[in-house]
């Protein structure tokens, strides 16, 4: 049985992440599941399953974040992803800068001061352009896994210009490009370029300040990290478990 000090639950639009930290703030356990339509039951089952692994689960402070945080009735506190991602990133990086979270439903750029406090943030507008969902839809259309999408983008130096970052229109643009005989790697690299151009504008709009850190599931993609660094013309760092940044930050807030 694992001794934990607090739990953080990030109920995102694509995945649900549960993280346990010990009293020192070290992540001691985590689980990631795809988000199910009945989030309330999913969270109940997820917490139930931790009882066999973690000591005193019901006594641990639980902080919920993510779009579904309002549905987590077991949570003692509900905090937005902005605060949680910043808290998690600060713990891992030890300093300020710009944190970019490319999530399933929205993309956020946060400016953090040296103490890790968020001084400014910007989120994408209402549509899913420039979010992780864009890559997900494109990968599905091209019948590639997300890992393959990254390696495919990096397998070429040339790219096709994609005019739309609209998730819906990009899908039809892909079909036209394939029909036009363009190689898939060039299309995939072009898709990344279109997405990251939009993410770059968002970060600059927030008042980009190096170092740049990337969190969220999309940060696991090497192509995203490399091409974002090109877009912003600075180094882009990530963490070993970028997808867990929000849940980890939530758990750390539970220790405070």
């Amino acid at each position: 049985m694992i001794e934990a000090g607090a739990l953080g639950l990030d109920a995102g639009s694509t995945t649900v992440k549960l993280v346990a930290v010990d009293e020192a703030g070290t992540m001691v356990w985590h689980r990631v599941e795809e988000t199910e339509p009945d989030l309330t039951s999913q969270v109940e089952e997820l917490l139930e399953s931790t009882r066999k692994l973690l000591h005193r689960v019901d006594e641990l402070p639980l902080i919920a974040t993510g779009y579904g945080r309002g549905l987590v009735k077991q949570a003692g506190r509900k905090v937005t992803e902005i605060t949680c991602h910043a808290r998690g990133a600060y713990q891992w990086s030890g300093g300020g800068g710009t944190l970019i979270d490319i999530g399933g439903q929205d993309t956020k750029a946060m400016i953090m001061d040296r103490s890790g406090a968020v001084t400014n943030f910007v989120m994408n507008d209402k549509c899913a352009a420039g979010t992780g969902r864009f890559l997900e839809v494109c990968a599905r259309r091209l019948r590639l896994s997300l890992d393959e999408l990254s390696s495919t983008a990096l397998s070429t130096e040339t790219e096709v210009s994609i005019s739309s970052t609209c998730t819906v229109f990009a899908e039809s643009e892909i079909i036209s490009l394939i029909a036009g005989g363009h190689p898939v790697p060039e299309i995939v690299r072009g898709l990344h370029r279109a997405l990251l151009g939009r993410v770059g504008s968002l970060a600059r709009g927030a008042g980009l300040r190096p170092p740049v850190m990337l969190s969220g599931g999309v940060a696991q993609s090497r192509a995203v990290r490399m091409l974002l660094a090109e877009e912003l013309q600075c180094e882009v760092k990530s963490f070993s478990e970028p997808q867990l940044t929000g849940a980890y930050g939530a758990a750390l807030l539970g220790l405070a």
Partner: peptide, 12 residues
Amino acid sequence: QVRNRLDAFLEV
């Protein structure tokens, strides 16, 4: 979307 942004802004 609006509630989420407002919540985050108020936390800041």
